[in-house]
Design a protein around this nucleic acid. Structure first.
Length: 840
RNA sequence: GCCCCUGUGUCCCAACCGGCAGAGGAAGUCGCCUUAAAAGCGAUCAGUUGCGGGUUCGAGUCCCGCCGGGGGCACCA
């Protein structure tokens, strides 16, 4: 394994008093890690009061906690390196920072590993946590480890269960029987969000449907609020997360319209275009909805059943193809159009979804392509009711969806305004009780039952006499039974169901025989409130101490992967709003700002075992050291961009760090020297760098900050070698600034520099360098003189030069005079103090 | 199909409110150091800002169209 060479002396002089030119990365790492373990510089609550005696302002730096699968990898390294720049910056700025970390430690991989190795899932889980904890410490992220916990700890999941029961008391957790996504490989149900392109997000197996009774959270009650809340997050959350959530919630405005059906209950449809009601020529209900079975005539029943068999055979992947031909069967009944009394044939088809809207639609083939395709397939009538000026859809089979003049539409005829048309029809429907304006959401309730072992047990007991009974609070947590190895094999029901001793209990209400609910919760439940627990991780009287949460929340920044744009982030927002309604929180959004990091890739491709292009974090750390790897990740580009490891240079990062470190050995002035007497040119560079870094950090432009620090290092090197010399106080000021700025990214190097500059540890809490505003004002600027937009001259002028003076200076400049010679000056644009443009 | 983001030296990337296209790094080239090479140190090279049009005294930046790359939604009525 290649190692950084040990420190050696300069070749050009064998004098042993010469400064060494490199430091031993690994020796420095073990040295400072021990010092930090002693000092614990990052305890939340340890910031000094401000000069006015007031306690320091709080900052909560949150990063998505990991699942403990093996050791840390490049992805962890990147996200925590970026996150740590923010946390350490806040410490330097004097804030009191809460920067906690823990593990999202329930989940499938542990269970699979336990089955393979004939052990308990906890064995795998807690061994990996120990490994990752050690790696994080070595990686020098400024976490406050005193607050760590794991979601699989009974002290934690006790409160997950408690919250479940509170949600249930509020009617927000309920059971229903419905077709659910089923992963045949993992042998468990999946939420809609965990099905991607018809496949299991985790294992890639094709997802099928199953009819099961399952627990749901009623997130749809909060659909409107979850949507509205995005408005205030727009400024501080990545745009793609906000739009992804908006799309996912999928609000649409329209109307419920009720159609009478002779001999049946009336059927209500949802439509966004009630104004096209006169163009409805048939109705379609979802073939797999109970409604279809209840409407169908005896003559048509065999046809419907045959069709349903066909539909069920088609996988979700087939169903996702949007261009496949329309299919369906008539149900043999007709519905009455409430506005004109027309009898519309009712069909069943799989292009109508059972779980969106009411599971039934009115078909307006002239103005909806899907309905038109269906009408074409079964030769149903097409009636245009909005004349857009385009060809009649009945002839072209191209539905028109634009604005136009209403025709064949009774009271709407001749009207051109779509909004007015919609309003008119809704008013009419509401007047005669056959419909109402309404809003519909794409968002479905959150399916949370999982048929797995390694998760949070659902604290419910099923009793024949009393039905669903909540486990009393004083009996929480419902602990997992001890199962291992083959007991965990997926078998279609939760492994818990087979643990007879555990399942069979007395009913808490009547004392009679009862069974525990044997499903466990989706792990997204665990992660929907962990950020609250960090505020008071040892609290025993509730999930969190309300006062501690008031002190720290909301999180000021949440750093993590964009893959959680709609899953975790939506659920966490939902939990926050429910807890607020329970009176436990006084805010509605948990994460004030968000930063999504890109991925680390290699040679243009995602790193994977099958491609054999993986870059091991461990080997990079061994070869280049923690600081160089962190610096490389931060410097590679904007945080949200992907980093191609083939494009970056950890060796270059290490070289830079050594160069920066070397400066600290060259400084010959003493700590505390009066910098006011130092070289002004260098002082200006230092002041400008510190000032700009402040602004750049606030907008997460960490790569530019690093570039600016490199500039400062280069300028300082020059000042030492061929400028004011190593003894000048400005050199000390510059190098101290470099140490503090570098402490955000390269804490070991920064600490070593700080120590060589004669300071006590730790540089991490040294404080942000102060900047004399006078040094930010330049005494002269370069004004550019353009003739017809081309630069002809440069003038050194005072920054507060007047427009008239600058114009006069420009017009008398020799080069300018030459350039405009013989031409008519038509206009002179002056933008003092930077620019003069002469139009000829 | 619809929506969003993006395109700057060989490569990764900077460029405030429209005002000198270049901060930083990598690679290349040339030196210094070395018996030599690597490493290190120093210097240096690098352009029709994807294409076409428009607005403007002036466009990498704003507007329109196209092309390439990335992402979201997609039978959601």
């Amino acid at each position: 394994m290649p190692r950084v060479r040990p420190a050696h002396t300069r070749k050009r002089s064998m004098d042993e008093h010469e400064q060494p030119t490199t430091y031993d990365v690994h020796a420095v790492q073990s040295k400072w890690r021990a010092v930090w373990d002693e000092l614990e510089p990052f305890r939340a609550g340890s910031a000094a009061p401000g000069p006015d005696g007031q306690p320091a302002e709080k900052r909560y730096a949150l990063t998505m906690f990991p699942y403990p699968s093996g050791d840390l990898h490049m992805g962890h390294a990147e996200v925590t390196a970026l996150h740590d720049v923010i946390a350490r910056y806040w410490w330097q700025k004097g804030y009191d920072v809460l920067n906690p970390m823990g593990w999202d430690s329930f989940g499938l991989p542990a269970e699979n590993a336990a089955f393979r190795n004939d052990e308990h899932p906890a064995t795998y889980t807690y061994a990996n946590i120990a490994t990752q904890l050690d790696s994080f410490r070595n990686y020098a992220i400024s976490f406050d480890w005193s607050r760590r916990f794991n979601t699989s700890d009974p002290e934690y999941y006790r409160w997950t269960q408690w919250l479940f029961l509170k949600f249930r008391e509020r009617g927000l957790a309920y059971r229903k029987n419905s077709p659910v996504n089923w992963c045949p490989h993992d042998q468990t149900v999946l939420a809609n969000e965990q099905v991607v392109d018809g496949r299991c997000e985790r294992c890639g197996a094709e997802v099928t449907k199953r009819e099961l009774t399952q627990w749901y959270f009623k997130i749809t009650d909060y659909a409107q609020e979850l949507l509205d809340g995005l408005d205030e997050l727009e400024a501080t959350w990545p745009a793609r997360v906000v739009t992804a959530q908006r799309n996912w919630i999928g609000r649409s405005e329209g109307a419920h319209v009720t159609f009478e059906i002779a001999g049946h209950d009336p059927v209500t449809v949802f439509t966004t275009r009630p104004d096209t009601l006169y163009g409805a020529t048939f109705m379609v209900v979802a073939a797999d909805a109970p409604l279809a079975a209840s409407l169908v005539t005896d003559e048509q029943r065999p046809a419907l059943e045959a069709y349903l068999d066909e539909v069920r055979k088609a996988s979700d992947i087939d169903r996702l193809a949007t261009d496949r031909p329309k299919s369906g069967v008539p149900l043999g009944v007709t519905a009455t159009n409430p506005v004109n009394g027309e009898q519309l044939p009712v069909w069943a088809s799989d292009y109508v979804l059972a779980d969106y809207g009411t599971g039934a639609i009115m078909a307006v083939p002239a103005h909806d392509q899907r309905d038109l395709d269906f009408a074409k397939a079964f030769d149903l009538p097409v009636r245009m009711v909005v004349d857009t000026g385009e060809d009649d859809p009945a002839a072209t089979y191209v539905a028109t969806t634009g604005d136009g003049t209403y025709v064949n539409s009774g009271p709407l005829d001749g009207l051109r305004d779509k909004a007015a048309g919609i309003r008119t029809i809704i008013e009419r429907l509401e007047a005669d009780g056959s419909g109402t304006g309404t809003v519909n959401f794409r968002l479905r309730d959150w399916l949370l039952s999982r048929q797995r072992y390694w998760g949070c047990p659902i604290p419910i007991v099923h009793c024949e006499k009393d039905g669903e009974v909540a486990v009393p609070e004083d009996q929480l947590p419902v602990l997992l039974p001890e199962l291992r190895g083959a007991d965990l094999k997926p078998q279609g029901v939760s492994p818990l169901a087979a643990a007879t001793d555990w399942v069979e209990v007395e009913c808490p209400t009547c004392g009679g025989p009862a069974t525990r609910d044997s499903d466990t919760m989706d792990t997204f439940v665990d992660s929907s409130w962990y950020f609250l627990r960090y505020c008071s991780p040892q609290y025993t009287d509730g999930p969190f101490d309300v006062e501690a949460v008031r002190q720290w929340m909301p999180a000021d920044i949440y750093v993590g992967g964009v893959e959680h744009a709609v899953l975790h982030l939506l659920y966490a927002r939902f939990f926050t709003k429910v807890l607020r309604d329970m009176g436990m929180l006084d805010f509605s959004e948990p994460f004030a700002a968000q930063l999504n990091q890109g991925q680390v890739i290699n040679e243009g491709k995602k790193m994977s075992k099958s491609l054999g292009n993986g870059v091991q974090l461990g080997s990079q750390l061994e070869e280049f050291g923690v600081d160089a790897v962190r610096l490389t990740l931060v410097f590679a580009g904007p945080p949200e961009d992907d980093i191609d490891w083939a494009d970056v240079s950890p060796g270059g990062s290490l070289r830079f760090l050594q160069r920066a470190w070397r400066l600290s050995g060259d400084v010959t002035s003493e700590p505390g020297v009066d910098v006011g007497t130092g070289d002004v040119a260098l002082r200006r560079v230092t002041a400008r760098t510190v000032h700009d870094a402040d602004e750049l950090l606030a907008s997460f432009r960490f790569n530019v900050v690093v570039a600016r620090v490199m500039e400062l290092v280069n300028a300082t090197r020059k000042a030492i070698d061929s400028g004011c010399g190593p003894a000048d106080p400005a050199v000390r000021e510059a190098v101290e600034a470099v140490a503090v700025l570098l402490s955000l990214v390269a804490p070991y190097t920064a600490e070593e520099m700080w120590s060589r500059l004669g300071h006590e540890p730790t540089v991490a809490r040294a404080g942000w360098p102060s900047v004399d505003p006078a040094l930010l004002v330049t005494e002269s600027v370069t004004a550019v003189v353009q003739v017809k937009g081309k630069v002809k001259a440069r003038l050194e002028v005072s920054p507060d030069v007047s427009a008239a003076d600058l114009e006069a200076l420009a017009l008398t400049d020799e080069a300018v005079v030459r350039a405009i010679e013989g031409q008519q000056v038509r206009r002179v644009i002056v933008r003092e103090p930077n620019l003069v443009n002469i139009v000829v």
